[in-house]
Design a binder for these strands. Structure first.
Length: 556
DNA sequence: CTGGGGAAGGGGCCC
DNA sequence: TGGGCCCCTTCCCCA
């Protein structure tokens, strides 16, 4: 007994689910396009994917081997078993497909392309001949490679790659955006500079680092991940969407010794290997981190329910955990929303209206101005003081220059009037703090929350504070936050993207900074180098010792 | 419920 | 430009 069309129906269902993003559990990054798919389907179709998907939820493909439009055809083929006639009509297209199929070890597709070329009287170019060659590290003797392609570097190569890709992406970003956007279907998420993140039909949101014109890659230190045996999955390749390209396809025949011990990359959806105190919810996956990054920037439209509660510090509010966005709730056209999260002016424009007061970091985030629709359109660059969005940093800078002290603060005061009495009457101590005014003071001092300078009045304080944000020339393209140094901004961007190049060999936890990893390693070693001279208490972190000392010195 | 400790994230700043 | 360090902060666990 056999159910007729069972396979066809099954594949049809899977393809429909892919189109809707339903149960998709992997994202393939090709240049500046993201494709969602199912691991099982990919693994069943390609040895290459089979070797990668168990460990990575985010896979970068070598753009020299496959372009977004070609990969769309590849993916269509995987899910349907056929190539549309329009796609395959051109020999050039077939040749590109063959290259991609070879790279991805889609033997059936490669054979199909070869037959097609042969049928058309073409012979596959030498560059498209399938050959086998070892990977640069010699670990994948059976992998298929293109003979014309020089062996890729080992996964630590990613900086090299990103270097060349960076320039390419910049060009693609502007020159090919139109074409790509036409090329890409709805289930693909297009990323560009002005739309560094966009929403998939299912509402999932992703972000792309180099689309922002930044090389956010970071070489893993030799001491952290780094042995010759280190598995690609332990390296930042998958956690840095653009800084790395998937290495030469490994073969499944070769077990990756470290896979059991080493954590999956930060893209893992599963809880990590137990650390001392596993806190899965904090150890967000890379996708989760990416989503988190975007969620940090996601802003519900002003007036939308829950508009103000989406961003709580840097945590993702539960309602957004799955990439839920306003547009979806409202049933709005997703295409219209495609720049929404990309705009993510978020902390800068609106989502961060709650503001963040963190030590010396004190940004006054405001609600978007009337008429400013965060995320609608290409207004990715957000003016912190007024919340207006602009499509380019140049326009934003020009706009910032037009701000005068008076107009900024007149607006604020008007807003305060509308809110009923102004901030000095506000009961919320946070408000006082954020305004640099001490609660309860009869004659509140106007103290700058950035440098603690005390001003004689609110106007002076605001004038002074303006100098701070004007002196932060490095805006985060995702959230609009301004930074004093480019390096700090770049580091901040890594946190948006969940790039954690430094992995603990013991528990697999990953960190954005090597220093953090070294600090973390004390958890495993038990080393507590910081000792309280008052009580003898020992601490693994100096900051905790300092915190402890404050407890000693506090009046209570 | 609260406070202390452990662990981690993020920004500023210096080199 | 990146590493290292400092500081502030947050969250969780536990007594």
């Amino acid at each position: 007994m056999e159910q007729q069309n069972h396979f066809k129906q099954l594949l049809l269902q899977l393809n429909q689910q892919r189109a809707k993003g339903y149960l998709c559990d992997v994202i393939i990054v090709v240049e500046n396009a993201l494709f969602r798919a199912h691991k099982n389907v990919l693994a069943a179709s390609s040895v290459y994917f089979k070797s990668l998907v168990p460990h990575d939820n985010l896979i970068n493909l070598d753009t020299e081997m496959v372009s977004p439009s070609v990969f769309r055809q590849v993916l269509d083929f995987i899910y349907t078993g056929r190539l549309s006639s329009s796609d395959s009509v051109s020999d050039h297209s077939v040749s590109s497909l063959l290259t991609a199929a070879s790279y991805l070890q889609l033997t059936e597709l490669a054979a199909l392309c070869q037959r097609k070329l042969k049928h058309n009287g073409q012979t596959p170019s030498s560059s498209n001949k399938l050959t086998t060659s070892p990977t640069p590290n010699g670990h994948t003797p059976g992998s298929l490679r293109l003979s014309s392609t020089p062996p890729r570097a080992t996964p630590s190569h990613h900086n090299n790659h990103s270097g060349s890709r960076k320039g390419n992406l910049r060009n693609q970003r502007w020159g090919q955006e139109g074409r790509l956007r036409e090329d890409l279907s709805e289930e693909e998420v297009f990323i560009s500079g002005s739309r560094c993140a966009s929403l998939s039909p299912s509402g999932g949101s992703r972000v792309n680092g180099l689309a922002l014109g930044l090389d956010l890659s970071k070489r893993s230190p030799s001491g952290s991940t780094a042995t010759e045996e280190v598995s690609p999955s332990s390296l930042p390749q998958s956690s840095s969407p653009h800084s790395s390209v998937s290495p030469t396809p490994p073969t499944t025949a070769e077990p990756r010794e470290n896979q059991r011990q080493l954590p999956n990359t930060s893209t893992d959806l599963l809880p990590r290997a137990p650390c001392k105190r596993p806190r899965p919810h904090r150890e967000a996956t890379n996708l989760g981190e990416t989503g988190k990054a975007l969620h940090k920037g996601l802003v519900k439209k002003p007036g939308a329910p829950g508009h103000e509660k989406l961003v709580r510090g840097d945590r993702v509010t539960p309602e957004l955990e799955d990439g839920e966005v306003d547009g979806e709730e409202n049933g709005q056209d997703q295409s219209e929303e495609s720049g929404h999260s990309g705009h993510s002016g978020s902390e800068g424009g609106g989502g961060g209206a709650r503001g963040k007061r963190n030590g010396n970091t004190n940004y006054i985030y405001r609600q978007p101005q009337p008429g400013f629709e965060p995320g609608v359109g290409d207004n990715l660059y957000v003016c912190i003081p007024c919340g207006k969005g602009f499509p380019s940093s140049e326009q934003l800078n020009a706009h910032v220059d037009t701000h005068t002290q008076d107009e900024i603060y007149i607006e604020e005061e008007e807003e305060e009037e509308e809110e009923g009495g102004g901030y000095l009457k506000d009961e919320d101590p946070d408000i006082y703090a954020s305004r640099g005014v001490e609660p309860g003071a009869d004659e509140p001092r106007h103290r700058c929350t950035v440098c603690s300078k005390t001003c004689k009045d609110a106007v002076s304080l605001r004038e002074h504070e303006k100098s701070h944000w004007l002196n932060r020339p490095f805006p985060c393209n995702i959230c609009g936050k301004l930074f004093t140094q480019r390096g700090t901004m770049t580091r901040h961007m890594r946190s948006h993207l969940g790039l954690k190049p430094f992995a603990c060999e013991e528990c697999g936890m990953r960190f954005t900074r090597q220093y953090r990893l070294a600090e973390h390693m004390r958890v495993h070693s038990g080393e507590k180098p910081y000792e309280c001279q008052l009580c003898g208490g020992k601490f693994t972190q100096q900051r905790n010792l300092l915190s402890h000392l404050k407890m000693h010195t506090s009046p209570s």
